[in-house]
């Protein structure tokens, strides 16, 4: 973690920037504006909660930031590089190396064990087996599941699955972690444990953590909150 801690000293540098980000869907003959000219900046080490009602554009925003969707207008810059200029292959490379994703429904691969799910991004990076094994062991210990590595996702509780998903998101030591409703499928106690873990990891790994939620409990954990309503972003609301 030394390199991460060192990197965290660079707090205050803009890691992520959204400029006039707009996403419009064509539904039949009418246009639906999911995001309208959103501007947003996240600094290194930020923990930002993005809240808002269902259908407000939170997930669309996250999809554009994570480069799994392209904006209709505007751009996303990660460490100063516009994702609009990257090819499909380069976007995949960006996601693989710099972004960790945590999904509402965990999205673990059912045929892989907990440890193999956590290891998957390292397989994409083609790291040697010994290094993969060391990193998996370390991250599973960190999320408190060192003893459950051999279990399949269907043999784990919801909270345990989300911890594995967090381990998978962090194992490549990404600079940006995006979580879409990470506690939505968990009971309140487990949700609190997961959020404690995410806040700890944010502090220790010094990653930019963007959490989309409409759960006010989750919002408590963030140092910064933004709200999206009708596709428009409002800084500081609800904080």
């Amino acid at each position: 973690m030394s390199s991460d801690s060192q990197f965290c000293h660079e707090k205050g540098l803009a890691f992520l920037e959204a400029r006039s980000l707009t996403k419009t869907y064509q539904v039949g003959s009418s246009a639906v504006h999911a995001l309208q000219s959103v501007n947003f900046t996240a600094m290194q080490g930020d923990f930002v909660v993005i809240n808002g009602p269902s259908g407000s554009g939170k997930t669309t925003f996250l999809n554009l930031i994570s480069a799994i969707d392209r904006p209709t207008q505007g751009e996303v810059l990660i460490q100063g590089v516009s994702t609009n200029t990257l090819s499909e292959r380069q976007l995949a490379q960006l996601r693989k190396d710099k972004i960790g994703l945590i999904f509402q429904s965990f999205n673990l691969i059912p045929v892989l064990s907990a440890a193999e799910n956590a290891e998957y991004p390292l397989l994409l990076q083609r790291l040697p087996k010994t290094e993969r094994a060391q990193r998996v062991q370390a991250i599973l210990s960190e999320v408190g599941l060192a003893d459950l590595g051999k279990r399949r996702p269907n043999e784990l509780s919801g909270g345990q699955r989300q911890r594995i998903a967090i381990a998978r998101a962090l194992i490549t030591r990404p600079k940006l972690v995006l979580a879409d409703e990470p506690t939505a499928n968990l009971d309140s106690e487990t949700g609190a444990q997961v959020m404690d873990l995410m806040r700890r990891l944010n502090e220790e790994h010094c990653v930019v953590l963007l959490v989309v939620t409409h759960d006010p409990e989750v919002a408590r954990y963030a140092r910064r909150q933004v709200r999206i309503r009708d596709g428009r972003l409002m800084e500081g609301e609800g904080s």
């Binding site: 799994i68 490379q93 994703l101 691969i109 059912p110 991004p121 994409l124 998978r168």
Partner: peptide, 16 residues
């Protein structure tokens, strides 16, 4: 489909 979407989101290329 969803699983394929997940591994693509994690950085797996179309070719992979």
């Amino acid at each position: 489909t969803r699983e394929i979407g997940t591994i693509r989101a994690l950085g797996t290329t179309r070719g992979e």
